[in-house]
Design a protein around this nucleic acid. Structure first.
Ligand code: ZN
Ligand code: ZN
Ligand code: ZN
Ligand code: ZN
Lengths: 156, 156
DNA sequence: AATGAATTGATATGTTATATCATATACCTC
DNA sequence: GAGGTATATGATATAACATATCAATTCATT
């Protein structure tokens, strides 16, 4: 039995199951197109801009894809919590633990492009406390630290 | 003695002096065009996108201004520390205390657009400690909290 | 099969940011 | 003050990022 041409990036079972569980729980449709976008982000292993994602999908599927299509898929994936957006890079990356709702903070390596997604309750509490001291009612916090990851810091 | 037509937004002496001191100290030129961009940001009282700034300058000066011109002025103002960029809004605002080097954190009111620029040593230390625990060498931290300011939170 | 809601496609447009090359201005040295 | 250098500006084009609108299709439910 032969395999047909791949129309979607390889997606390890672990991630596929997480994505399916995530969407099932929220009663939303994980369509093939949405899954393909997600698989491409997982496969890339680093954040992708929307247009980088478009290029990869077009290459994979051998057809033109309108930007709006991909933006809609990204919007969906972010809404259900499978994907996050990095504001300081205008790019998108899959969540590392989409099984539960959470805020995140990010360590972005400017040398190799690797991203570490953190969940520091300590930091979140401090942020809320600071906001509170200023009479501010926070709804969302963007915390993105740029620098050098362990590997890259050593090899300099 | 009559005043000619304003070619630059009104800039309180306090800010003008800060800007001049800041540029003098760094031996860089605070040209009229750069000062005009800065004055417009001060006058606005809230963050401006680059193109909003262009529109204001064009209206003020009654002439077309190329985007690149304004981006260059913004780049200069950020480099000397007179202006910051808000990554989550893709917009720019004048620094509230340009007299000393600093990292900042921001409280962004989604209702009235007001921005509070903070300098929490406590938060900075925690961020550095967290990065350190991950073997990460930080160079820059983006911390932008969206929510409702005191005024807007009350009037809801 | 009929209905209504959600998704996708096609096309156009709006917004944000940079590249390149030429011209002008300030600054320094002589 | 002339000449040379670095810096700043202008003009034009293009790249990168994101959304609006409306029509067509697919899906779940009855
Ligand atoms: Zn996550
Ligand atoms: Zn690295
Ligand atoms: Zn500042
Ligand atoms: Zn407010």
């Amino acid at each position: 039995m032969t395999r047909g041409p791949a129309t979607s990036a390889p997606l390890p079972a672990k991630w596929r199951q997480l994505a399916e569980a995530c969407c099932a729980e929220q009663r939303v449709r994980l369509t093939p197109a949405r899954l393909a976008a997600y698989a491409e982000l997982i496969d890339a292993g680093h954040p992708l801009s929307a247009y980088e994602l478009i290029a990869l999908l077009e290459q994979r599927q051998k057809r033109k894809i309108a930007p709006l299509t991909v933006y809609r898929h990204l919007e969906f994936l972010m809404r259900v919590g499978l994907v996050h957006r990095l504001e300081s890079m205008q790019s998108y990356l899959p969540c590392e633990h989409p099984d539960h709702a959470h805020e995140s903070q990010y360590l972005l390596c400017s040398s190799c492009g690797q991203v570490d997604e953190l969940e520091s309750k300590r930091l979140e509490k401090l942020l809320h406390r600071i906001a509170d001291q200023h009479g501010f009612l926070p709804s969302n916090a963007v915390v993105e630290v740029t620098g050098l990851c362990g590997n890259c810091a050593q090899s300099t």
